[in-house]
Protein backbone atom coordinates (compact mmCIF):
# COMPACT_ATOMS: atom_id res chain seq x y z
CA UNK A 1 0.00 0.00 0.00
CA UNK A 2 1.35 3.36 -0.97
CA UNK A 3 1.44 6.10 1.50
CA UNK A 4 -0.20 9.09 -0.13
CA UNK A 5 -0.45 12.74 0.70
CA UNK A 6 -3.98 13.88 1.49
CA UNK A 7 -4.13 15.92 -1.72
CA UNK A 8 -4.08 13.15 -4.23
CA UNK A 9 -5.88 9.97 -4.99
CA UNK A 10 -4.36 6.93 -3.32
CA UNK A 11 -3.65 3.60 -4.96
CA UNK A 12 -4.29 0.27 -3.41
CA UNK A 13 -1.63 -2.39 -3.16
CA UNK A 14 -2.22 -4.96 -5.89
CA UNK A 15 -2.21 -8.03 -3.62
CA UNK A 16 -4.63 -6.42 -1.24
CA UNK A 17 -6.81 -5.38 -4.11
CA UNK A 18 -6.83 -8.93 -5.45
CA UNK A 19 -7.79 -10.43 -2.09
CA UNK A 20 -10.57 -7.90 -1.69
CA UNK A 21 -11.93 -8.68 -5.14
CA UNK A 22 -11.74 -12.40 -4.44
CA UNK A 23 -13.49 -12.00 -1.11
CA UNK A 24 -16.32 -9.97 -2.64
CA UNK A 25 -16.67 -12.46 -5.47
CA UNK A 26 -16.79 -15.35 -3.07
CA UNK A 27 -19.59 -13.87 -1.00
CA UNK A 28 -21.44 -13.11 -4.21
CA UNK A 29 -21.17 -16.75 -5.19
CA UNK A 30 -23.06 -17.71 -2.05
CA UNK A 31 -25.58 -14.89 -1.73
CA UNK A 32 -26.91 -14.68 -5.22
CA UNK A 33 -28.15 -11.58 -6.98
CA UNK A 34 -27.32 -9.15 -4.18
CA UNK A 35 -24.06 -7.51 -5.32
CA UNK A 36 -25.04 -4.06 -4.08
CA UNK A 37 -25.85 -5.28 -0.58
CA UNK A 38 -22.67 -7.34 -0.44
CA UNK A 39 -20.70 -4.34 -1.51
CA UNK A 40 -22.33 -2.35 1.28
CA UNK A 41 -21.50 -5.10 3.77
CA UNK A 42 -17.86 -4.92 2.72
CA UNK A 43 -18.01 -1.13 2.82
CA UNK A 44 -19.12 -1.42 6.38
CA UNK A 45 -16.16 -3.68 7.16
CA UNK A 46 -13.67 -1.37 5.43
CA UNK A 47 -15.08 1.74 7.03
CA UNK A 48 -14.85 0.15 10.49
CA UNK A 49 -18.60 0.32 11.10
CA UNK A 50 -21.19 -2.24 12.06
CA UNK A 51 -23.90 -3.60 9.86
CA UNK A 52 -27.60 -3.97 10.55
CA UNK A 53 -29.55 -6.18 8.20
CA UNK A 54 -33.24 -5.59 8.52
CA UNK A 55 -35.52 -7.90 6.62
CA UNK A 56 -38.02 -10.69 6.68
CA UNK A 57 -36.88 -14.08 7.88
CA UNK A 58 -35.52 -16.42 5.28
CA UNK A 59 -34.25 -13.95 2.71
CA UNK A 60 -30.62 -14.75 3.53
CA UNK A 61 -29.58 -12.42 6.33
CA UNK A 62 -27.86 -15.17 8.23
CA UNK A 63 -26.46 -16.73 5.08
CA UNK A 64 -24.82 -13.42 4.24
CA UNK A 65 -23.32 -13.18 7.70
CA UNK A 66 -22.08 -16.72 7.50
CA UNK A 67 -20.63 -16.24 4.06
CA UNK A 68 -18.77 -13.19 5.33
CA UNK A 69 -17.46 -15.14 8.27
CA UNK A 70 -16.27 -17.98 6.05
CA UNK A 71 -14.61 -15.61 3.62
CA UNK A 72 -12.86 -13.50 6.21
CA UNK A 73 -10.37 -15.35 8.30
CA UNK A 74 -11.83 -13.99 11.53
CA UNK A 75 -12.94 -15.57 14.77
CA UNK A 76 -16.68 -15.92 14.45
CA UNK A 77 -19.46 -16.09 16.98
CA UNK A 78 -23.18 -16.17 16.57
CA UNK A 79 -25.62 -15.08 19.24
CA UNK A 80 -29.29 -15.83 18.82
CA UNK A 81 -31.01 -13.05 20.73
CA UNK A 82 -34.03 -14.03 22.79
CA UNK A 83 -36.14 -12.24 25.38
CA UNK A 84 -34.48 -14.12 28.23
CA UNK A 85 -30.93 -13.42 27.11
CA UNK A 86 -28.97 -11.61 29.80
CA UNK A 87 -26.07 -9.20 29.26
CA UNK A 88 -23.72 -11.64 30.94
CA UNK A 89 -24.74 -14.28 28.43
CA UNK A 90 -23.04 -12.34 25.72
CA UNK A 91 -20.31 -10.47 27.56
CA UNK A 92 -19.18 -13.27 29.76
CA UNK A 93 -18.97 -13.76 33.51
CA UNK A 94 -16.40 -13.64 36.27
CA UNK A 95 -16.28 -16.93 38.11
CA UNK A 96 -14.46 -17.54 41.33
CA UNK A 97 -11.62 -19.92 40.70
CA UNK A 98 -10.99 -21.86 43.87
CA UNK A 99 -7.54 -23.03 43.03
CA UNK A 100 -6.34 -19.55 42.23
CA UNK A 101 -8.49 -18.01 44.93
CA UNK A 102 -9.79 -15.19 42.78
CA UNK A 103 -12.41 -14.23 40.19
CA UNK A 104 -11.50 -15.19 36.71
CA UNK A 105 -13.24 -13.56 33.70
CA UNK A 106 -14.68 -16.00 31.26
CA UNK A 107 -15.32 -14.10 28.04
CA UNK A 108 -18.69 -14.55 26.41
CA UNK A 109 -19.47 -14.92 22.71
CA UNK A 110 -19.01 -11.19 22.30
CA UNK A 111 -15.28 -11.76 22.23
CA UNK A 112 -15.06 -12.50 18.55
CA UNK A 113 -13.77 -10.61 15.55
CA UNK A 114 -16.95 -11.18 13.62
CA UNK A 115 -20.14 -11.36 15.64
CA UNK A 116 -23.50 -12.27 14.23
CA UNK A 117 -26.23 -10.87 16.48
CA UNK A 118 -29.30 -12.63 15.18
CA UNK A 119 -32.71 -11.08 15.76
CA UNK A 120 -31.34 -8.38 17.97
CA UNK A 121 -34.78 -6.88 18.58
CA UNK A 122 -35.98 -9.95 20.47
CA UNK A 123 -33.68 -9.25 23.41
CA UNK A 124 -34.53 -6.85 26.21
CA UNK A 125 -33.22 -3.31 25.99
CA UNK A 126 -30.76 -4.08 28.76
CA UNK A 127 -29.09 -6.84 26.79
CA UNK A 128 -29.27 -4.80 23.60
CA UNK A 129 -27.49 -1.89 25.20
CA UNK A 130 -24.77 -4.15 26.56
CA UNK A 131 -24.00 -5.18 23.01
CA UNK A 132 -24.30 -1.70 21.60
CA UNK A 133 -22.01 -0.21 24.23
CA UNK A 134 -19.43 -2.83 23.45
CA UNK A 135 -19.79 -1.98 19.75
CA UNK A 136 -19.24 1.70 20.41
CA UNK A 137 -16.32 1.37 22.80
CA UNK A 138 -14.55 -1.73 21.48
CA UNK A 139 -14.30 -2.94 25.06
CA UNK A 140 -16.44 -4.23 27.94
CA UNK A 141 -16.17 -3.56 31.64
CA UNK A 142 -16.98 -6.39 34.03
CA UNK A 143 -16.59 -6.01 37.81
CA UNK A 144 -14.58 -2.84 37.36
CA UNK A 145 -12.14 -4.38 34.96
CA UNK A 146 -12.01 -3.47 31.30
CA UNK A 147 -11.57 -6.11 28.67
CA UNK A 148 -10.58 -5.03 25.18
CA UNK A 149 -12.43 -6.67 22.39
CA UNK A 150 -10.42 -8.29 19.60
CA UNK A 151 -9.57 -6.20 16.56
CA UNK A 152 -11.02 -5.98 14.06
CA UNK A 153 -14.38 -6.15 15.74
CA UNK A 154 -17.28 -6.30 13.37
CA UNK A 155 -20.91 -6.87 14.26
CA UNK A 156 -23.55 -7.99 11.85
CA UNK A 157 -26.94 -7.68 13.50
CA UNK A 158 -30.20 -8.78 12.00
CA UNK A 159 -33.70 -7.82 12.90
CA UNK A 160 -37.16 -8.66 11.64
CA UNK A 161 -39.15 -5.49 11.15
CA UNK A 162 -42.57 -7.15 11.02
CA UNK A 163 -42.33 -9.44 13.99
CA UNK A 164 -43.54 -6.99 16.62
CA UNK A 165 -45.10 -9.15 19.33
CA UNK A 166 -42.65 -9.69 22.14
CA UNK A 167 -39.89 -7.67 20.54
CA UNK A 168 -38.06 -4.57 21.59
CA UNK A 169 -37.29 -2.54 18.47
CA UNK A 170 -34.02 -0.69 18.73
CA UNK A 171 -34.54 2.95 19.69
CA UNK A 172 -33.32 5.60 17.27
CA UNK A 173 -30.36 6.54 19.41
CA UNK A 174 -29.18 2.94 19.37
CA UNK A 175 -29.66 2.55 15.65
CA UNK A 176 -27.02 5.22 15.24
CA UNK A 177 -24.44 2.67 16.39
CA UNK A 178 -24.83 0.84 13.10
CA UNK A 179 -23.00 2.53 10.31
CA UNK A 180 -25.14 0.94 7.62
CA UNK A 181 -28.55 -0.59 7.63
CA UNK A 182 -29.42 -2.70 4.64
CA UNK A 183 -32.21 -4.97 3.63
CA UNK A 184 -31.88 -7.91 1.33
CA UNK A 185 -35.31 -8.24 -0.21
CA UNK A 186 -36.51 -11.19 -2.19
CA UNK A 187 -34.08 -12.60 -4.71
CA UNK A 188 -34.64 -12.04 -8.37
CA UNK A 189 -36.24 -14.79 -10.43
CA UNK A 190 -32.95 -16.12 -11.76
CA UNK A 191 -31.26 -15.91 -8.37
CA UNK A 192 -34.13 -17.74 -6.76
CA UNK A 193 -34.02 -20.45 -9.42
CA UNK A 194 -30.34 -20.88 -8.75
CA UNK A 195 -31.06 -21.13 -5.03
CA UNK A 196 -33.67 -23.77 -5.67
CA UNK A 197 -31.52 -25.86 -7.96
CA UNK A 198 -28.08 -25.44 -6.47
CA UNK A 199 -26.81 -27.23 -3.38
CA UNK A 200 -27.71 -26.04 0.04
CA UNK A 201 -26.13 -22.74 1.02
CA UNK A 202 -24.89 -23.94 4.37
CA UNK A 203 -23.14 -26.79 2.66
CA UNK A 204 -21.64 -24.40 0.18
CA UNK A 205 -20.41 -22.11 2.93
CA UNK A 206 -18.68 -25.00 4.64
CA UNK A 207 -16.58 -25.52 1.51
CA UNK A 208 -15.39 -21.91 1.38
CA UNK A 209 -11.82 -20.99 2.12
CA UNK A 210 -11.00 -17.68 3.74
CA UNK A 211 -9.63 -15.02 1.40
CA UNK A 212 -8.65 -12.27 3.81
CA UNK A 213 -7.17 -12.26 7.25
CA UNK A 214 -7.38 -9.74 10.04
CA UNK A 215 -4.15 -7.98 9.06
CA UNK A 216 -5.39 -7.43 5.59
CA UNK A 217 -8.63 -6.03 6.88
CA UNK A 218 -6.74 -3.63 9.13
CA UNK A 219 -4.60 -2.56 6.19
CA UNK A 220 -7.69 -2.08 4.04
CA UNK A 221 -9.31 0.01 6.73
CA UNK A 222 -6.25 2.21 6.89
CA UNK A 223 -6.25 2.56 3.14
CA UNK A 224 -9.95 3.34 3.06
CA UNK A 225 -9.51 6.14 5.59
CA UNK A 226 -6.92 7.76 3.33
CA UNK A 227 -9.08 7.81 0.21
CA UNK A 228 -9.26 11.33 -1.22
CA UNK A 229 -12.43 13.29 -0.67
CA UNK A 230 -11.97 16.39 -2.80
CA UNK A 231 -13.41 19.79 -1.85
CA UNK A 232 -16.04 19.28 -4.51
CA UNK A 233 -17.06 15.98 -2.93
CA UNK A 234 -17.18 17.49 0.54
CA UNK A 235 -19.36 20.25 -0.93
CA UNK A 236 -21.79 17.66 -2.16
CA UNK A 237 -21.70 15.74 1.12
CA UNK A 238 -22.42 18.87 3.08
CA UNK A 239 -25.21 19.79 0.72
CA UNK A 240 -26.78 16.40 1.38
CA UNK A 241 -26.39 16.68 5.14
CA UNK A 242 -27.72 20.22 5.05
CA UNK A 243 -30.71 19.05 3.08
CA UNK A 244 -31.60 16.47 5.73
CA UNK A 245 -31.65 19.26 8.29
CA UNK A 246 -33.71 21.64 6.18
CA UNK A 247 -36.25 19.18 4.84
CA UNK A 248 -39.78 19.99 6.07
CA UNK A 249 -40.68 16.31 6.51
CA UNK A 250 -37.66 15.55 8.66
CA UNK A 251 -37.63 16.54 12.31
CA UNK A 252 -34.05 15.59 13.09
CA UNK A 253 -31.51 15.52 10.32
CA UNK A 254 -28.13 13.84 10.22
CA UNK A 255 -25.80 14.43 13.14
CA UNK A 256 -22.14 15.31 12.62
CA UNK A 257 -21.33 11.74 13.61
CA UNK A 258 -23.65 10.53 10.86
CA UNK A 259 -21.86 12.85 8.46
CA UNK A 260 -18.51 11.32 9.41
CA UNK A 261 -20.00 7.85 8.96
CA UNK A 262 -21.35 8.88 5.57
CA UNK A 263 -17.92 10.03 4.43
CA UNK A 264 -16.21 6.91 5.81
CA UNK A 265 -18.72 4.65 4.09
CA UNK A 266 -18.35 6.59 0.83
CA UNK A 267 -14.58 6.19 1.02
CA UNK A 268 -14.92 2.47 1.59
CA UNK A 269 -17.31 2.27 -1.32
CA UNK A 270 -14.72 4.04 -3.48
CA UNK A 271 -12.15 1.42 -2.50
CA UNK A 272 -14.58 -1.33 -3.46
CA UNK A 273 -15.00 0.42 -6.84
CA UNK A 274 -11.25 0.33 -7.29
CA UNK A 275 -10.76 4.05 -6.88
CA UNK A 276 -8.47 6.06 -4.65
CA UNK A 277 -10.86 9.02 -4.60
CA UNK A 278 -14.53 9.49 -3.82
CA UNK A 279 -17.15 10.28 -6.40
CA UNK A 280 -20.63 11.62 -5.73
CA UNK A 281 -21.79 8.17 -6.80
CA UNK A 282 -20.04 6.64 -3.76
CA UNK A 283 -21.90 9.01 -1.47
CA UNK A 284 -25.14 8.21 -3.25
CA UNK A 285 -24.57 4.49 -3.01
CA UNK A 286 -24.16 4.58 0.76
CA UNK A 287 -26.47 7.48 1.57
CA UNK A 288 -29.72 5.56 2.03
CA UNK A 289 -28.10 2.77 4.14
CA UNK A 290 -26.30 5.38 6.25
CA UNK A 291 -29.04 7.97 6.60
CA UNK A 292 -32.14 5.82 6.33
CA UNK A 293 -32.16 4.69 9.94
CA UNK A 294 -30.88 7.97 11.35
CA UNK A 295 -33.49 10.40 10.09
CA UNK A 296 -36.45 11.22 12.27
CA UNK A 297 -39.54 12.00 10.21
CA UNK A 298 -41.54 15.04 11.28
CA UNK A 299 -44.61 13.01 12.21
CA UNK A 300 -47.77 11.62 10.75
CA UNK A 301 -48.14 12.13 7.08
CA UNK A 302 -44.40 12.12 6.49
CA UNK A 303 -43.02 9.55 4.17
CA UNK A 304 -40.99 6.79 5.75
CA UNK A 305 -37.30 7.32 6.37
CA UNK A 306 -35.91 5.42 3.44
CA UNK A 307 -38.25 7.10 0.98
CA UNK A 308 -37.23 10.44 2.42
CA UNK A 309 -33.55 9.57 2.11
CA UNK A 310 -34.07 8.53 -1.50
CA UNK A 311 -35.97 11.74 -2.21
CA UNK A 312 -33.11 13.78 -0.79
CA UNK A 313 -30.74 12.09 -3.22
CA UNK A 314 -32.79 13.24 -6.17
CA UNK A 315 -33.28 16.72 -4.70
CA UNK A 316 -29.67 17.61 -4.02
CA UNK A 317 -27.78 18.61 -7.15
CA UNK A 318 -24.32 17.35 -8.01
CA UNK A 319 -22.59 20.44 -9.28
Amino acid sequence: MTHASPDTAVTLDAALSTSLDRAVAQVNSVVLGKPAQIRLAFASILAGGHLLIEDLPGVGKTTLAHALAATLDLSFQRIQFTSDLLPSDIIGVSIFERDRNRFEFHPGPLFAQLLLADEINRATPKTQSALLEAMAEQQVTVDGRSHTLPAPFFVVATQNPLDLAGTYPLPDSQLDRFMLRISLDYPSREAERALLTAPDRQQLISTLAPCMDANQIVALRKHSASVLASPALIDYLQALIGATRAHPEIRVGLSPRAGIALLAAARAHAVLSGRGYCLPEDVQAVFVPVAGHRLTPAGHGSRDRETLARALLTDVAVR
Binding site: P6, D7, T8, A9, L228, S230, P231, A232, L233, R275, G276, Y277, C278, L279, P280
Partner: peptide, 10 residues
Protein backbone atom coordinates in the same frame (compact mmCIF):
# COMPACT_ATOMS: atom_id res chain seq x y z
CA UNK B 1 -13.25 16.12 -15.36
CA UNK B 2 -13.22 13.44 -12.69
CA UNK B 3 -9.45 13.75 -12.36
CA UNK B 4 -9.74 17.49 -11.84
CA UNK B 5 -12.79 17.59 -9.66
CA UNK B 6 -12.62 14.48 -7.53
CA UNK B 7 -9.22 12.84 -7.93
CA UNK B 8 -7.31 15.90 -6.80
CA UNK B 9 -7.83 18.33 -3.98
CA UNK B 10 -6.57 21.31 -5.98
Amino acid sequence: YVALRYASAQ
